[in-house]
Design a protein around this nucleic acid. Structure first.
Lengths: 354, 354
DNA sequence: TTTTATTTGGCAAACGTTTACTGGAATCTT
DNA sequence: AAGATTCCAGTAAACGTTTGCCAAATAAAA
């Protein structure tokens, strides 16, 4: 057998370990090595064994770039988030990463920081690396910018609402369940005067949360009153501002429900500064159950939306699009109340201060 | 010119836009296109212009996998962290990502979760994707496991201390400065009885912080006393346990300094539960200045270690290794005190309770 | 004008895989 | 036992770039 010599061995120096090295060591062709690695079932048991041994002794692993170049699969998913320092996202990332890694994928994280220019960069980066799909978990309104991804036929998954496209899916969040639990928890304690601080209303998910609140209020027989409804922007500052507005009004509610935890934490601050005790003088409920919620004072009663479920749902959806693009599946994420210490009986009730 | 036809056009369907398409459109060879994109200076102005135009109108961008396959550069850096849900890390990631992206790099994040098996997986993942360097920001003791990276000659950068290797660097953190500031802040308020809750002492960075504390105490003329020195483990639970131990002792200190913020927050909890007011009855100082520190009650006085500096330092170090491996640079990260509301006059002092 | 030097662009070989195709050996039919 | 079938390993083409080498074209020198 005439040893086929590798051409142009000028700068050999230190070559990376190669599939050919394995082939030579196991005395098979590179095709067999490749097939063994990819667990193609037609390769003979004994041969495969030999190949695996060689791989092991040589400590070889395949070159991903070469692999994905020829197979056309990057095994890369993009994950688009708002900002990584927002405590909501790291858990989401963790869940997504876990799914990805255990399925042989890698993940490319893009933080938009609410900046249109950055979104563009992120999309570009993902496109360049040939991601096989993108999970858009920003809750924002950047959808027009994602047109490029749609036209390039990159599978995508969104939360709540998604642009049209055959390879695009939306994860449904059941806001109603958790928010209803929150409202009923308050109602059970005796609250009737409940305010709601929403997120930015141009955001679909903010609208949905607000609607869920209104519906839950109707269910307990309280007519939603306009001057109980404030608009925040899902930031700490927004929560502070909204609560300040609220405190200026003539009639105070006995409880406040917030569209997310940061808003609630902002509200908590203003209340503390105004000398109002929580929960004795005002109950507060958040939404999301971010890590922070537990550490704040008092620990925040909040509606949990599992980041892990969200992450898993997004990953599975992306995979599903790849594998069965014709099937339009629907995934629903559930929510539920976590009771901590920011809720109690309404002030002035017989039981308050107990 | 005989149009060289692409062989085997069976499954053309929808080909991705190609360097050849650009070449054809600009009426040049693919080599020229490549050189234009890579800004090789020998390409003629006019031609380059034409090529850029074509690239623009076709909306082309190169395939990264092919690129890195042939060039041998993945333009990928690994970032190894302990756990992404630990609020210390997201800011670090953000800084690192920013540096990376603006330099045309992508980043692969690996969370060890303090699990040896996962570390192995992370290293493997990074190796498979051919990272050009790894920033190990775990503060842990996983160094033996990284031997593989050393032997494969992957540039690496660590915090505080690094294993031997020509392509390995360590970032120096100036713990002394911030910790001295903390101790002097307490001393200025009148504290003399100061405890220290360290991190796990098998961790180099824990040792260094502890040493810095002892030295700072000597500087203010207080002999470090053994039963003022506790060992925690840098977690909330560890901080709680240590503080509980402390409260059992016969003589209480008037202030506690902690090796990180989570420890301090744990301590805060135990103090609150024990009915001790902070800072009136006990002052507490943390370390790191994580996001959380500001939101805890009372807002935590702490020593800031800039995650951004750390991230930038790590990135620059990795780049420096690539470019001038012979030069052994040293980068120092500074620290400094952030005074919030968990420190005050010692109890019993004339001014306390003011 | 001819020769020599200098640009500059094109050809084609790599990069390390996967995979369609091929053909020899083994197994099955009759 | 001969032909038909099945099985499986090897050959080589392809993936989309970069880049060493070379030739054509242009400029400079003689």
């Amino acid at each position: 057998m005439p040893e086929k010599k590798r051409p142009l061995e000028l700068k050999k120096e230190k070559r990376r370990l190669d599939i050919r090295d394995v082939a030579k060591h196991a005395r098979v062709s590179i095709a067999t090595v490749s097939r063994t690695i990819n667990r193609v079932p037609t390769v003979d048991k004994a041969l495969a064994e030999r190949v695996w041994k060689s791989i092991d002794t040589l400590n070889y692993f395949p070159n991903t770039q070469a692999r994905s170049l020829v197979s056309g699969r990057s095994r890369l998913f993009g994950l688009l988030i708002s900002e990584i320092t927002n405590p909501f996202f790291p858990e989401l990332i963790q869940g997504f990463e876990e799914m990805a890694v255990s399925n042989g994928y890698e993940i490319l994280i893009g933080s938009t920081n609410y900046d249109l220019g950055r979104i563009d960069t992120c999309i570009r980066r993902m496109l360049e690396r040939n991601v096989e799909g993108v999970a858009v978990m920003t809750f924002g309104i950047e959808q027009p910018l994602l047109a490029e991804l749609v036209t390039r036929e990159v599978p995508m998954v969104f939360v709540d609402t998604a642009p049209a496209g055959p390879l695009v899916r939306a994860l449904q969040v059941d806001y109603q369940k958790g928010i209803r639990e929150g409202v009923q928890h308050l109602a059970a304690l005796g609250h009737r005067e409940i305010s709601f601080i929403s997120g930015p209303l141009q955001q679909r998910s903010s609208q949905l949360r607000r609607q869920a609140f209104l519906r839950a209020m109707e269910e307990i027989g309280v007519a939603p009153c306009n001057n109980r409804l404030l608009e925040g922007n899902h930031t700490l500052e927004g929560g502070m501002a909204a609560m300040e507005d609220l405190l200026k009004k003539s009639s105070l509610p006995t409880a406040v429900m917030c569209s997310n935890d940061m808003t609630a934490i902002g509200a908590l601050r203003v209340l503390a500064r105004a000398g109002m005790k929580v929960p004795e003088e005002m109950s507060v409920i958040g939404f999301d159950d971010i890590h922070l919620a537990e550490f704040v004072y008092p620990p925040l009663t909040t509606v949990q939306m599992s980041r892990n479920d969200l992450a898993r749902g997004a990953f599975e959806a992306l995979r599903a699009i790849r594998e069965t693009p014709e099937k339009m599946g629907r995934t629903t994420i559930t929510t539920g109340l976590i009771v901590r210490q920011s809720t109690g009986y309404p002030r002035g009730s017989a039981l308050s201060g107990l």
